[in-house]
Design a binder for these strands. Structure first.
Length: 554
RNA sequence: AGACCCAUGGUGUAAUUGGCAACACAACAGAUUUUGGUUCUGUCGUUCAAGGUUCGAGUCCUUGUGGGUCUACCA
């Protein structure tokens, strides 16, 4: 198989092209995404998913999905379903069936036997604390276990009896026999198998010994003939062991390549911390719209395309990166600007009365659904004497010449309707505006304006009698600090933003009552909003997906 | 007796592998606009330090500085 001439976009692709040019694996490229099914996928996983799938795709290769389920205590089938759902939602389909490391338990066991027979592994009866002590320290060599020199035959017998369930948890482990003075602490006779009399979510009671990461992950890669095993930087030290085991076991030589994890401002990606947010009641669950989980981002309304673009455009490197929320939100707006239809909703309504418009009259006005895409068509909007407009769009006095909104004496265009002249307002005892009074120019109707009046500003509005109440959930970042984990001596919980969620009741145009769960809109001049699953008949709930960029400096 | 990884505008990444440091985001200014959105134009500003090799260094070498990772029977 001759390799088409690819250009490398990053160092991983350089390595792949190098392998291709060397004729390795006959030009075949196969990657994998190996989550542990013990939690929900988050934005950091999205990066790994995108890298693995996109890299394979670029070279005409395939990508497996493999559950790294070697720890029966933490893994649950429930998570498997969510992980699969999230990956498909992101837009990727893996090769064949979902794989499980647990499917390879028997093969792994045989591999362990092989290692024992080669004199490269031994059963150790030291306690966990003793083993820790044997490891030595950074810069200090370790010491050999007293059980290190047992014969292969004795080790085999002991290991078989471990499997048979003769020994209690923690009483024995299988260790690789490498070098207790190795500068890489991971190669100081790492533990390969431990005893756990626990039921596994897939294999049930079949096993009471379970392999550890280092004796499961790489071997699974080899079993699946993965050519390039892409993982994050903290596994760099594991690569030495990964390669040592490939040699010792004489198995398919997958190549591990590490890249830097992606961090995003205001997002945390520690499973444990995410869980804590739920347990403490800070958020409502794994799919709370403020969570950095894919379930949360989906609920918030982030389009998968935007997340993919974000992951791709932030590149692949070996240096720790901290991405800004700005870029992520830019990617979200970029997609939604194209796809989301424009509707009008008033978030903080104040009544506006057009004093020269006939009482009781309603007319239907036509408005375009999406100025970016004419094929989205038009719809009808009811217009009447009493409207709601945004409280923020009125000032008792205009501040300066650059102010284009409502204030006494100002002309303003109502989107797709008429130009109105602001006459003044009514207020309560505290000086709060209770009503804005205006007159309209009958000849200024949108599309057939002969009034000659020029209005600099255009406002969104809804007809008061026709408006529907909609619940709107306004979100801000969950934390007040972009990197809540990076403060010495301070717990990340100290940075919880008390205003991360504000629920308001807004006035929406009638069509919004029919919005379906998952559907996204632009509320004119406000932002992009997506219908939340909490929506019930006649009670629509919208999530702020992302605000519009605003050049207004009032 | 420590080992390994990393260092380019405010942020994130490029640089034909030794040949004019570029792209995106952000910021700022202007044009267009029935969204102060979008779109378009422009401005701003960058190779961690010192030394070396070279006609020529972001790129190669040396030393230093700064940051990160590694001592789970987690993955």
């Amino acid at each position: 198989m001759s390799s088409p001439s690819h250009t490398a976009d990053n160092f991983i692709e350089e390595s792949i092209i190098e392998d291709l040019n060397n004729g390795k694996h006959g030009g075949r490229i196969h990657t994998r995404f190996p989550p542990e099914p013990n939690g929900y996928l988050h934005i950091g996983h999205a990066k790994a998913i995108v890298i693995n799938f996109e890299t394979a795709k670029k070279f005409g290769g395939r990508t497996n999905l493999r559950m790294d389920d070697t720890n029966p205590s933490t893994e649950e089938t429930q998570f498997v379903d969510n992980i699969q759902h999230d990956i498909r939602w992101l837009g990727y389909e893996w090769e064949g069936e979902t794989r499980y490391a647990s499917d390879y338990f028997e093969e792994l066991y045989q591999l362990a036997l092989k290692l024992i027979d080669k004199g490269l592994a031994y059963v150790d009866e030291s306690t966990a604390t003793e083993i820790e002590a044997q490891k030595g320290d950074i810069g200090v060599p370790g010491t050999n276990s007293p059980y290190r020199d047992r014969s292969p035959a004795e080790n085999r017998d002991l290991f078989e009896r471990m499997r048979a369930g003769e020994f209690p948890d923690g009483s024995r482990v299988l260790r690789a026999k490498i070098d207790m003075a190795h500068p890489n602490l991971l190669l100081r006779d790492p533990v390969l198998y431990r005893i756990k009399h626990e039921a596994h979510h897939r294999t049930g009671e079949d096993w009471c010994i379970y392999p550890l990461y280092d004796f499961a992950h790489g071997q699974s890669d080899s079993i699946e003939k993965i050519t390039h095993s892409l993982c994050s930087l903290e596994f760099r030290h594991h690569r030495d062991l990964y390669n040592w085991l490939i040699e010792a076991l004489e198995i398919f030589p997958s190549r591990q390549i590490e890249f830097a994890r992606m961090n995003v401002d205001y997002f945390i990606t520690s499973k444990r911390k995410l869980k804590l947010l739920i347990e403490e009641g800070v958020v409502s669950g794994w799919d709370d719209a403020r969570m950095s989980t894919l379930a949360g981002l989906r609920r918030k309304g982030y389009p998968p395309e935007a997340i993919r673009n974000f992951c791709m455009d932030t590149g692949v490197t070996r240096r720790d990166s901290q991405q800004t929320l700005d870029l992520l939100e830019f990617k979200v707006r970029e997609v939604m600007n194209r796809n989301a239809d424009r509707y009008m909703a008033v978030l903080d309504p104040v009544k506006l009365v057009i004093t020269n418009y006939p009482e009781g009259q309603t007319e239907l006005l036509e408005t375009e659904n999406n100025p970016e895409d004419e094929s989205h068509g038009t719809r009808q909007l009811p217009f009447s004497r009493e409207l709601y407009v945004e409280r923020e769009d009125y000032r008792k006095e205009p501040q300066n010449r650059k102010y284009y909104r409502l204030a006494p004496g100002k002309d303003v265009r109502l989107k797709s309707a008429y130009i109105i002249l602001c006459e003044g307002h009514e207020e309560d005892d505290e000086g709060n505006v209770t009503q804005i009074n205006c007159t309209y120019y009958p000849e200024s109707k949108s599309g057939e304006d002969t009034s000659g009046v020029k209005a600099k500003g255009t406002l969104h509005w809804v007809s008061a009698p026709a408006a529907v109440d909609i619940e709107v959930r306004m979100y801000q970042p969950l934390f007040t600090d972009p990197t809540p984990m990076d403060h010495e001596g301070k717990d990340f919980m100290e940075f919880i933003n008390p205003e991360s969620l504000q629920v308001i009741t807004a006035k929406g145009e009638p069509a919004l009552a029919e919005a379906e769960v998952g559907e996204s809109f632009q509320f004119l001049r406000q932002g992009y909003f997506t219908v939340d699953p909490d929506t019930a008949a006649g009670k629509p709930v919208f999530n702020l997906t992302v605000g519009l960029k605003s050049g207004f400096k009032g």
